[in-house]
Amino acid sequence: MMHDEHRDYITIKDEQGNLKDFAVEALFEMEGRSYALLTAEDETMVMQVEGEEGDQYLVGISDPVESQSILDAYQIAVEEAPAE
């Protein structure tokens, strides 16, 4: 797997026990909660960031509708952000 030097990577185990590397594309907040946008070759997912600074972990969002609505809202925010 080709890794971009400027990105953080995280390995996630799925329900079948398979390990997969995801790039951390973005960290963002929405409605007072923190989320991480993760991508692999064929998959994009959003996970909630729990815990305090220095002791944080990712929690999967079990509701696919909630996950998609967070992803949609993030995409809209990115598209509407002023270009620097």
Rank of each mutant, 00 (worst) to 15 (best):
D55G: 00
V46W: 00
A26K: 07
E41L: 07
T39V: 04
G32R: 08
E52Y: 06
T44N: 09
A36R: 03
L27G: 08
M47F: 09
G17V: 08
E31S: 11
M45D: 02
F22L: 13
T11S: 14
E50T: 01
A36T: 10
M45I: 07
A40S: 15
H6C: 00
T44F: 04
M45L: 15
E15K: 13
F22T: 09
A23T: 10
E52V: 05
M45R: 13
V46M: 05
L19C: 01
T44L: 12
D21Q: 14
L37W: 08
R33E: 09
I10D: 12
E15P: 05
D14L: 03
E15N: 14
K20H: 15
F28N: 04
E25R: 05
E43H: 13
L38W: 09
D42T: 07
N18L: 12
D21K: 14
T11H: 14
L19T: 00
I10W: 12
H6V: 00
D14T: 06
M47Q: 13
T39W: 05
E29T: 13
E50P: 00
T44H: 07
T44C: 08
L37H: 06
V46G: 01
E31N: 12
V46C: 09
H6K: 05
T44P: 02
V46R: 01
A40M: 10
T11C: 10
Q48V: 07
Y35V: 15
L27H: 07
D55Q: 02
E41C: 01
F22Q: 14
D14G: 09
Q16D: 15
A26G: 06
